[in-house]
Amino acid sequence: MSRLPQDLEARLAAAAPAGVEFSAETDSYGVTVAWCGLAAAADLSPVAALLKDLGARLSMITCTMPSAPEEEEEDEDDDDSEDGEEKAEAAPKETPKSFGGTPLDGTSYEIDYHFDIAGDALTVIAYVPQGGGIPSLTPLFRNADWHEREMMELYAVAVTGHPDPRRLFLDASVDGAVLERLVPFSTLVNAASTKGLWERLLAGKKGAA
């Protein structure tokens, strides 16, 4: 039996006028894990306010860049909207879209807000296109602070209205958006290597792309 409110889906839909994509699953231990995709990232703030009222605890924020599907095969992304006919009819190069229409071409962001409600888990998913922004949840959930600061240094995603948008772990001298770049392993571990090796590797990388 789920500890999430019975009418949670309806209340989330009421808070997010652009639409939600809700699913929930209860495991054999009786723990429910629910997912709520938002059609518009701007609906995040009212949804978060609703969850705050419900006594939810913000547990984690995950930012990802869903990779572009490979061109040869039909890559069925889990977070894709279910309208498969659009994909089938479209030209092979047609970019798949998230629920809500953000292009999933490898440059968009998916930001997952993992909440705990009385022991059950609810993940609210917002999609942000490259160059877009997402409202900060820190004014509502104080503990979003570090998550959002970490997100801002790992990705080039803009978090608007963050009260203290300093670097968290990375020094200011390090270029931003480190997870969007190829960082050679020797750079990552601060090790030395010959220049020739890297020129060969990077040339090979370009050839493969």
């Binding site: 790992l154 670097r167 968290l168 772990f169 990375l170 020094d171 480190v178 997870l179 960082v183 990552l188």
Partner: peptide
């Protein structure tokens, strides 16, 4: 002020 033991394991 954090960042003295950041190792990039998430990337790895």
């Amino acid at each position: 002020n954090a960042g003295h033991a950041h190792r990039g394991i998430e990337y790895l």
